[in-house]
């Protein structure tokens, strides 16, 4: 699964609604061949970025390419990308079977067998109207519609944000099974790091339209360390250890650092970090920085 073209390539991408910028000068590369988690706090620009990538929005500035082409540039491009939108909309008045027929009529690469099989596995009634489905079933139906299209790239925008924990787990399970069976790239946005940790192998942290950190999950976990030891100023750390966050008590200091080399200083107690720690660290990092800027401004 080595693909030269990126799943999503954004350059200087910006979107403005009236006077408010939802996304500003966003430059990022989402590599193909991964299950990419796009995380960030609410308002970071995740949904805007995905809407731009699926062509539901047009950029105010910059460009975005999906699988090397402009989004919605034609039926061929549309066929390559599957999209499960936020709140997983479905046609309330149409039955589950109607949705499958819709997919079959509108997609040349439609895999009817796959769609049938998934609906059966989920135990959904083909005759039931989508409007009467539970939130979880509706999300599953939307996912089935996107998967049976046999896309090269599947984009999911907070598909499970409104689901209960069980439905959420089931949804992710189906997604994981699908990625194991079919070969396609996935980009899924969420503000729940735990969800992404289950399925994702690549993580992008987006805060205020900026990519704070991006990389393979294993690599991120291996290169981030939590250091605890006697109180020390952040300037006292070696140059190859990038401090993400620090906190200090009277005698003790704790640092979240990024370093490609092992931590050898015996003064530190080095503990492993979870993906969630890393993401929260970067979120705190970003808000601390903006707080610094605010203080600077106040002093002037």
């Amino acid at each position: 699964m080595t693909d030269a073209t990126a799943a999503i390539e954004a350059r200087g991408l910006g979107k403005r609604y009236g006077h408010r910028w939802a996304l500003t000068d966003c430059t990022l590369t989402v590599p193909a061949g991964h299950v990419v988690g796009l995380v960030g706090p609410n308002g970071a620009g995740k949904t805007t970025l995905i809407s731009l990538a699926t062509g539901m929005l047009a950029p105010t500035t910059g460009t975005v390419e999906v699988l090397g082409a402009r989004p919605t540039s034609g039926p061929r491009q549309l066929a390559r990308v599957g999209y499960v939108a936020q709140e997983t909309p479905t046609y309330a008045g149409l039955s589950v079977a109607d949705h499958l027929r819709l997919g079959a009529h509108l997609n040349p690469r439609w895999d009817a067998g796959l769609a049938r099989r998934r609906i059966e596995q989920l135990g959904m009634d083909l005759k039931q109207k989508a409007g009467n489905l539970s939130g979880g079933q509706r999300a599953q139906l939307a996912l089935t519609l996107a998967l049976a299209k046999r896309p090269e790239l599947l984009i999911l925008d907070e598909p499970i944000a409104s689901l209960d924990p069980l439905a959420r787990r089931e949804f992710l399970q189906v997604l994981m099974d699908a990625t194991a069976e079919q070969e396609f790239s996935v980009v899924m946005s969420s503000h729940q790091v735990a969800d992404l940790e289950r399925v994702g192998d690549y993580l992008i942290v987006l805060i205020d339209s900026r990519v704070q950190v991006a990389g393979e999950v294993d690599h991120l976990v291996a290169t981030h360390h939590l250091l605890t030891g006697p109180r020390r100023d952040r300037a006292g750390l070696p140059a190859n250890q990038q401090v993400i966050t620090d906190s200090h008590t009277g005698r003790q200091s704790t640092f979240l650092v990024r370093s490609d080399e092992p931590i050898i200083d015996p003064a530190w107690t080095v503990s492993p970090v979870s993906l969630e720690d890393i993401v929260l660290g970067y979120m705190g990092h970003s808000s601390a920085r903006s707080a610094d800027i605010k203080m600077l401004g106040a002093r002037r």
């Binding site: 539901m56 919605t72 549309l78 066929a79 939108a85 046609y91 519609l145 299209k149």
Partner: peptide, 17 residues
Amino acid sequence: EAGTHRIAWNQSVTRTR
């Protein structure tokens, strides 16, 4: 209103069609 255009516009059919 229902957001279903997001389904329709992401099938392999152009918006013009």
